[in-house]
Nucleic acid binder design. Structure first.
Lengths: 208, 208
DNA sequence: ATTAAAAATGAATTATTATTCAAAAAATGA
DNA sequence: TCATTTTTTGAATAATAATTCATTTTTAAT
């Protein structure tokens, strides 16, 4: 099924090569300082060719981001559909997220610069898409938190506050991992993150 | 003491007006889309005049950020010098941070877009300054966490991990507050943040 | 009031780069 | 092979905006 011709296959392959070249450059220098000619050169195409695949530099940039965000969102949603306690699912999401981040370091350099930027809200649409996915991701997490509260697994705190706290901790660990000059395993931090998020950081008195 | 002449006083006043105009525009549109002419118009000066105060657009931008970061760092350091339990001081820092954020909404729109951007590492110096202050702020917090562990107030978790977790939660709440269309008090979130950070989110079993 | 010094101005300069498009190259098929 | 269509190309175009600086305006001094 899905028999597609050589032409289409090649088109997709070229498109992918361009996206990957762009990913490397955007990760290294950011959006504005990266030029279309540089991307073309990196991808071994002529400058004009890029415009056969993407109608503008911004289109290329946001296509890149959106496709990857879609990918991770997909993984997370699939996980959340599983049975199991809320806490188990939260742990699984952390593992997924950190694993995906390790496999996509370049992308995350771009993404974490992007997600807290407001510049795009001006130019409608393109930037909005990324922002909306962020919001819907939080909403999804809040949903899970709510379930956890209902089931008595989590404390009665506003589910959105819980979601923001978790996302905050995760982002902070990802950021640190990205900028760290010494490479280390991000996945090894899952337990620490979970411990802090679930049980807090205050030492518990042994006895009264 | 410190008798300064009218000339110098006016120079400083003009400089401040330019910085404030720039703050408003950068907060609204971000660095690249904001032009020097726009800033000049907003501040009611000629374009060329800006260059009497700042040697480039980047200089203006980073001066703005650095001065404000300096200000908050100063407040935090002063607080940390106080006596009292580590947990009390952490609470005080949260209050300071959230209060400062509420009073400087425009600035924080700029700052949270800036702090996770890598574009500047290229252009040496200017961007580096902001980054360094961030790092030294984390180091300071880690110091406090270490003290908390030594005194038995906090669990034995890597002090840097503790610092990153706290900063992550705080940033996440600040971000949410900035983008929220409905205004609300950020300071009212101090207790929630503290509760999550210290005691975690997992419901504790009443009895075995 | 007159002149000299200082400050402010914004039009002109310069540099940069996204995008286009006429020409060249490659693929197709008769 | 050769004519036709499709794809690629990168030099030329056009737009933008940071920065400069000759000129104007303001201030200070006599």
């Amino acid at each position: 099924m899905e028999r597609i011709g050589r032409k289409e296959r090649e088109f997709k392959a070229h498109r992918k090569e361009i996206l990957e070249a762009a990913e490397r450059l955007f990760a290294r220098k950011g959006f504005f300082p990266t030029t279309m000619s540089e991307i073309a050169e990196e991808a071994e195409f002529g400058t004009g060719t890029l415009y056969k695949f993407f109608k503008s530099k911004e289109d290329l940039y946001f296509t890149l981001i959106n496709e990857k965000v879609e990918e991770i969102n997909h993984l997370v949603r699939a996980e959340l559909r599983q049975k199991g306690s809320v806490i188990e699912r939260i742990k699984k999401i952390l593992e997924l997220q950190f694993q995906f981040t390790e496999k996509n370091r370049d992308f995350f350099r771009i993404y974490i610069s992007e997600r807290s930027r407001f510049e795009w809200n001006v130019k409608e649409d393109l930037g909005k898409g990324v922002h909306n996915k962020m919001v819907s991701y939080i909403r999804l997490l809040a949903q899970v938190m709510k379930e956890g509260i209902r089931k008595g697994e989590l404390k009665s705190i506003s589910p959105f506050d819980l979601a923001h706290a978790l996302v905050g901790i995760v982002n902070s660990f990802i950021f640190e991992w990205i900028i760290s000059p010494k490479p280390y395993s991000l996945i090894s931090k899952v337990d620490t993150v979970l411990e802090i998020f679930l049980n807090g950081t205050q030492r518990i008195e042994r006895r009264k």
